[in-house]
Design a binder for these strands. Structure first.
Lengths: 320, 320
DNA sequence: CCGCGTGATGGGCAAATGCTCACTCAAAGC
DNA sequence: GCTTTGAGTGAGCATTTGCCCATCACGCGG
């Protein structure tokens, strides 16, 4: 009755995709029924649904506290005095770990953003956080503020690909304070310049006050993000390892006990170290390659929350 | 690698179903791959996934503000001064409307429960709210309290089938105050007895203070829930209609202007009317049969929030 | 101890889905 | 004004999924 709005014309690009996906997943129609409903061909319906999935419009969650994961969560909380621990069901390779963890981390972020008391949220960068954001629902949460812990310019001058704060801002509409300078200075002079820029000073001050901090973690093996993304050279990595490096949070490298290293690389990081005060630092990370780094961060009480996958959690608990 | 925890034995009943569903939907594996992974047959994997879906372990949401729905939301807010309005994409029959609305309503409930400041939440009953709850994620939210607006005993003495408060309590772990008396008294004496029961007095007082109230709405046509569920007779319904009845909220019947009727049926309802103070009353309802009732409730400003479907919203806006 | 019923299992097949390919149409470029 | 290019379309076909059925195992009553 009335409402003949989409006879095939009008209707913006993936508006229709969302509608098709909705009919498919929520409405339970078959693709040919959707085709009928929307007056399009079966193939087009199929393509629309596929597109909605590809663009991440379709979010699937499994609502079942798988017993083993719960036990691991409890174990992590007890052993390392964490305030938050979430363990996603098993994932084998590093790639899978990311996909496994992302929805859990996204749910945690949504929980933070759903609070009505305004929060100041500090954010790191990296592949893991990017994957997390892709899984987040858009949620209007203008009462909160977000600040970046770390610069957003790569050594070659490009914007860091794994910058996350802008993307979360898109989803939430929250005001945000990126740290618009390079991640690392190349020498002491540059470092002083960056550190004295007014917006850097204020962002750094803000970041230290964050009510909650969400970061990834970097490993120090040959696939270290700092190396892969071109922030440090292979020589510097070797030197860090010789100095006992076990991992890094926001570019700040620490040893196996979770103590920050006294090393040139650490000196020139423009961003702040994760706060070590009352407010929680939540780390989102998983995969065998990150286990050493996680153990160190947990041991040194650098983080108060961990969102990881089943295998990583089991490994951390079994041997440390 | 390692972690051979579920070689086919252990693993509780639908624990495995959740795991299979997880691998399927989140992990993106095919059913035969899942079968390999878990060491079971392809059919079993298929059955596990189907089971997880059937049991509602799998929650799918489409995250895309379909433009038309947004416009309808804005229209509803402006026209009726609502504080919340959500419109789910089109749904034709009444049955579909329920399926369409439920996920949206569930998201709204989750938003309420995700708040950290303790809330007192008053709840109605009905098919629509039941469908909503089935779509809610389990979420630990012990800080809130819930109270029922309405009795939970059907005229035949059985527990009302569409009771919702217990079920939300299961999902949230929040303390709850059901109103454990019949919905309606049969005469003035019974009425006085029920109303004076201590737990009814306190529940009623609590309900009136609720920070937020969530209810369905009942129509007055021949398929009126009050009639179908046996609370009133066909004669009473006819009499109500003769008196101008347009709909009911929690059993309290009002006319087309949203004014409560002065009628015997209204006199013997043990529960409370939805609060008319600062705090919002959110109505979850959709389908053509409910349009008249919704218009009346909106006109009388009985509700301050509406969660409905596209067709219902369009219809309400186009003619009232 | 044996037969019978109930419920889980895997094989096989039909339905549904997703992919590739050849084609069209329209906008940009020559 | 014609050609090129690329995105979108529908047909046909391979893959995947879901369903039905015969079979099997287990438990219970005779």
């Amino acid at each position: 009755m009335a409402l003949r709005t989409l006879d095939s014309d009008d209707a913006s690009p993936d508006d229709l995709a969302a509608r098709a996906a909705w009919l498919y997943y929520v409405g339970g129609l078959r693709q040919d029924q959707i085709a009928d409903e929307l007056g399009i061909s079966r193939q087009r319906a199929q393509r629309l649904v596929a597109r909605a999935v590809a663009e991440g419009l379709v979010k699937v969650r499994i609502d079942h506290p798988i017993a083993e994961c719960l036990e691991l969560e409890r174990g992590l909380r007890q052993r390392f005095g964490l305030v938050r621990a979430r363990v996603a069901p098993r994932a084998d390779s590093g790639q899978d770990a990311l996909r496994a963890i992302a929805p859990f981390a996204a749910a945690e972020m949504e929980r933070i953003f759903a609070q009505e008391t305004p929060q100041l949220i500090a954010l790191g960068t990296g592949r893991t956080l990017r994957a997390m954001i892709d899984q987040m629902q858009t949620i209007s949460a203008g009462q909160h503020r977000m600040v970046s812990l770390i610069g957003n310019v790569a050594p070659d001058g490009s914007a860091s690909f794994y910058e996350v704060i802008m993307r979360i801002a898109d989803k939430t509409g929250a005001p945000h304070y990126p740290m618009s300078v390079p991640v690392m200075a190349r020498d002491a002079e540059e470092f002083a310049t960056y550190r004295n820029l007014p917006h850097v000073v204020s962002s750094r001050a803000l970041a230290k006050e964050a009510d909650v901090t969400v970061v990834g973690i970097g490993q120090m093996a040959d696939d270290a993000p700092l190396l892969v993304d071109g922030f440090i050279t292979a020589e510097e990595l070797a030197s860090l390892r010789a100095a006992g490096a076990a991992g890094e949070l926001g570019g700040h490298v620490f040893d196996a006990e979770g103590r920050y290293l006294d090393h040139p690389v650490n000196e020139f990081m423009v961003g702040v170290r994760v706060p070590q005060n009352q407010n929680p630092v939540i780390c989102v990370a998983g995969g065998v390659s990150k286990i050493k780094a996680l153990r160190a961060a947990l041991k040194g009480r650098l983080i108060q929350g961990l969102i990881t996958d089943e295998l990583t959690a089991a490994e951390i608990l079994s041997t440390s």
